[in-house]
């Protein structure tokens, strides 16, 4: 029983850390993930708290590049299979982005 309780506590802490952003209990930056698969960003729209580090991972065999529409955050380099790119979103706002070599691939990070 104690194992199950510890698991629930860890889960609750995890949720709290996500909600609390950079000032979370452990002092760590909250992280959120975007998978790139089948030429799409998943989730296509992601809502995070200010200060969250967003990590993109390319699961396709084709390279992809994360580029901010209007150059509002730093672009990634070309990401080959399983490469990741991460950047921290400090300011609230809606950040549209796309893949510069497959521009029909679009995504949005909403920072609250």
């Amino acid at each position: 029983m104690s194992g199950a309780r510890a698991w629930w506590r860890a889960l609750a802490l995890g949720v709290a850390a996500l909600g609390a952003g950079p000032a979370g209990a452990a002092g760590k930056v909250a992280e959120a993930k975007v998978e790139i698969k089948h030429f799409a960003f998943m989730p296509e729209a992601l809502t995070v708290a200010a200060g969250t580090r967003v990590v993109w991972t390319n699961r396709d065999d084709e390279p992809h590049i994360v580029v901010s529409a209007g150059n509002r955050f730093a672009s990634s380099k070309a990401m080959d299979t399983d490469d990741t790119y991460a950047t921290v979103f400090d300011k609230p706002g809606t950040y549209a982005y796309f893949c510069s070599i497959h521009p029909h691939m679009v995504g949005t990070i909403i920072v609250r």
């Binding site: 529409a69 549209a96 982005y97 796309f98 510069s100 521009p103 029909h104 679009v106």
Partner: peptide, 10 residues
């Protein structure tokens, strides 16, 4: 036709 591509465009 591969430069200055826009989000959602061709």
């Amino acid at each position: 036709n591969v430069l200055n591509l826009k989000a959602g465009g061709f």
